[in-house]
Amino acid sequence: MTRSVALPALAVAFGLCLPQPLLAQDIYPSRPITMIVPFPPGGVADQTARPVAATMERLLKQPVVVSNRQGAGGAVGMAATANAKPDGYTIMTALSSISVIPEADKLFNRTPAYQMAQFAPIALVTADPTILVVPADSPWKTLAEFVADAKKRPGEISYSSSGLYGTLHLAMEMFAHAAGIKLKHVPFNGAGPALTALLGNHVQALASGPGVVIPQIQAGKLRPLANWGAKRIAAMPDVATFKELGYPSVEFTIWAGVFAPAGTPEPVLTVLRETMGRVVADGEFKSAMEKLQTPIAYLDAPEFRKFWDQDAQAMVKAVQAIGRVE
């Protein structure tokens, strides 16, 4: 660096340093916000968090930096958020599995990585129903045929999942429990390998998100049997929900929401909530989510908390129904 550049640069840097502490006290946010994503880049949480962060950045006029803190099925990043300073400068985008991890920890007599009470919900952003699919050449044309066959030979029909106590596992067990059938579980490491196993006919069924299964259904490789959502989805108007098919208690969505550490001051939470309300109404954000084929399912903090409580209860029940796998 030549001196002519260095000197002004130094002066600017020095100048920037001075007023910072004076400003910091009054208006939130006055410095960059970190958004923790407890999963690797490219996953569902990351795909949602990045457009959220980009839009927040534009609205708040402060950088919102996505930080992928993966590990232990998300527990590492969630615990990091739970224990972060509750000042609004650390927030998180997490998935429905946030309710499962403490319950699984309890099952194994482990000290839980975090407690649910350590989070303050800000907004629900997306909710994707799961779809039950079987290979296109399998004998079951309807859910009723599938259930009837499974009743005849308990524990013989196998399904793949993204991992033990993972979302795809829980969805399937919730249905199996309600239908009174017993299926054989073969866990894989992620939703991708689970799909590969189904396509290779190594297992006979799978629950997965619409974005994953629709291309395979269009290509004639898979057949959808039912939808875990509250209502049918636009891309598959013929696929009935479990509720319609006589299983009123079977509802499961893979959702993504934004959280702050509990204890974050109320004025800061208000700013975050208002910002999220503007994010989901933003044109660019909407088109980003449309590309992902993920419907926006915005809920503001109070409704989100209600939704989260109900969802967590259903999840905990599903985990308890599975119990400890020996």
């Binding site: 690797p40 880049p41 490219g42 996953g43 990351d46 795909q47 990045r50 992620g190 991708g192 390998p193 799909l195 590969t196 396509l199 974005g211 629709i214 291309p215 395979q216 269009q218 290509a219 490789k221 980003a288 449309e290 590309k291 992902l292 084929q293």
Partner: peptide
């Protein structure tokens, strides 16, 4: 379908761009 972690990230990249990776 991904054959490993790296193609998995690349598939995710395609999805972000609105290209549905699949047999078609």
């Amino acid at each position: 379908v991904p054959s490993g972690p790296i193609p998995a990230v690349m598939l995710a990249a395609l999805m972000v761009h609105g290209v549905a990776p699949g047999p078609l």
